[in-house]
């Protein structure tokens, strides 16, 4: 990729630079290089254990990095500059950078003791310092966008999985992130509820300036929604490209095998 001292907008939104992650002797990510442009929608696919979820978890700072640097929005995320050198990020740097990133989890992870409105105003009030009124206005707007206007006072246990996941999306958006991470967000849902969540994500991509990374097994959705699909295999990107190309006409044997296995299962 050509690097020029360009205006900020041409910088990638997310850049993985030789990022390595190990669990003991197991190498989960092996010197990964990956650039994601502003507003790009990237789908990450691959067999389990290929490191695809780790990519998201490291971006969210849920996992420590063992080698390399991750940059977000033109700044190092995992590190910070001190006296012209990159040193490991401290907590205050991490907190500032984390604000640029939002994440939606496979198992929703809603706060069960709060209503959907409560879930969506907690962090805006405590972290962004919004007043309750401002936070509630913002939360109402977002819950309406995900089609849950009538569920604002409901607790997670009173809602279906699809509804809970939509609350989780609204909750993450309430922090106004620049990058949204979706970690197998439909995998824990009953089949008939998958569509409503994907529809919300689709609209999000159309109506908002958001960089989106999603780990998914929904090949149909990836093909239609993503700008690029990355196929992970054993901690590396084995193949990547435009969805129609990669999913329709994969070049690598491993990609072909994986895709046919997924197709058979569905």
């Amino acid at each position: 990729m050509t690097e020029s001292p360009a205006p900020e907008t041409s910088q990638p939104m997310v850049r993985f630079e030789r990022v390595t992650k190990r669990y003991g002797s197991l190498v989960v990510l092996d010197e990964l290089d990956l650039d994601i442009a502003r507003n790009e929608k990237v789908a990450i696919i691959g067999p389990s254990g290929s490191g695809k979820t780790t990519v998201l978890r490291m971006l969210m700072t849920l996992e420590k990095i063992d080698g390399g640097v991750i940059h977000v929005d033109g700044e190092p995320l995992t590190h910070m500059e001190r006296n012209g050198q990159l040193v490991r990020a401290n907590e205050s740097h991490l907190r500032r950078m984390r604000g640029k990133i939002g994440m939606v989890f496979q198992h929703f992870n809603l706060f069960p003791h709060m209503t959907s409105l409560g879930n969506c105003i907690e962090a805006p009030m405590r972290v962004l310092g919004l007043s309750r009124r401002e936070a509630e206005d913002r939360a109402r707007e977002l819950l309406e966008m995900v089609g849950l206007r009538d569920k604002m006072g409901h607790y997670p246990s009173q809602m279906s999985g699809g509804q809970q996941q939509r609350v989780a999306i609204a909750r993450a958006l309430a922090m106004r992130p620049k990058v949204m991470l979706f970690d197998e967000v439909t995998s824990a849902l009953d089949p008939e509820l998958v569509g409503e969540v994907l529809n919300v994500i689709r609209r999000l991509g159309e109506e908002h300036d958001l960089t989106m990374l999603m780990v998914t097994h929904q090949m149909g959705f990836a093909r239609e929604f993503a700008d690029r699909v990355c196929f992970f295999y054993e901690g590396k990107i084995a193949e990547q490209g435009a969805p129609a190309e990669l999913l329709g006409n994969p070049k690598e044997e491993r990609t072909r095998q994986f895709l046919s296995a997924v197709l058979e299962a569905s």
Binding site: G99, F105, H113, E122
Partner: peptide
């Protein structure tokens, strides 16, 4: 663990995570 991770992803401080999310549960 998901409750801790969601709190971190929302950038809640350790204090607010304990006070508002963890302890009430």
């Amino acid at each position: 663990r998901g409750q801790w991770e969601a709190s971190l992803a929302l950038n809640l401080s350790p204090y607010h995570t304990f006070r508002d999310i963890i302890i009430p549960q």
